[in-house]
Amino acid sequence: MKNSGLLILGAFVVIISCTSLPRTTPLDAVRSAELHNKCCSLFLDGEWQFVHSIDASLPGGNGGVILGVTIISVPHQTIKCVIMTIEGFVLFEAEYDQTLSVTRSVSPFDSKAFAKALIKDIQLIFFRPGGKMIESGTLDNGLPVCRYETPGQGIVDIILHNDNTWEIQQFSSGFRLNRSVKLSSLQKAPYHQPPIPDHIKIEAHGLLGYTLIMNLVEAIPLTQ
């Protein structure tokens, strides 16, 4: 018993000692503003309906392929989402308009924690980080990064890659990595328009971690 207590304490010390934000090298004011614009330009405006095929790898070796429908309004910061089987059977349906309302949920998608996590994942993928940009620069590997902080909610890093891909990393207020999202867009976006990600891989870290690979089936703009 004493040994297992020590083990837990040891693991806790290791975890604490490993949690820090990736180091950045700051840019000058002009390049920092340019980078901030680039980071902001990765997020869509207006209202959209997306359909994705989602390959989910869940804790305990569970998982499968499902279809996800997401309707977002960027100006109103609202979300409607549906998860269904390929055969069209609805497993989960919810709306978020500053409060979450679940209209249908079938096991294993029937917990409140799942619904909240799903909405947070959608916000992380599609909405610009809500907080203030606190840093912009380059990481140790040379990739440009914009860092945003939302008080009480943590830190969001947006990392730009050179190959039409970008990454969103979300850290807790204690700087623990909670989510990693890798996004890519094969289709070149029209001039001055944000790219529509056609491949998204989201990883939730931690004991009950999961991975979702989302491939875009359809993107319908609902506003001009």
Binding site: V69, I71, K80, M84, G88, E93, E218, L222
Partner: peptide, 15 residues
């Protein structure tokens, strides 16, 4: 052709 109709969908999801 499978059409999924829902109130929230602007057009049905077609499989």
């Amino acid at each position: 052709t499978q059409e999924k109709h829902m109130k929230i969908l602007v057009k049905p999801l077609v499989s």
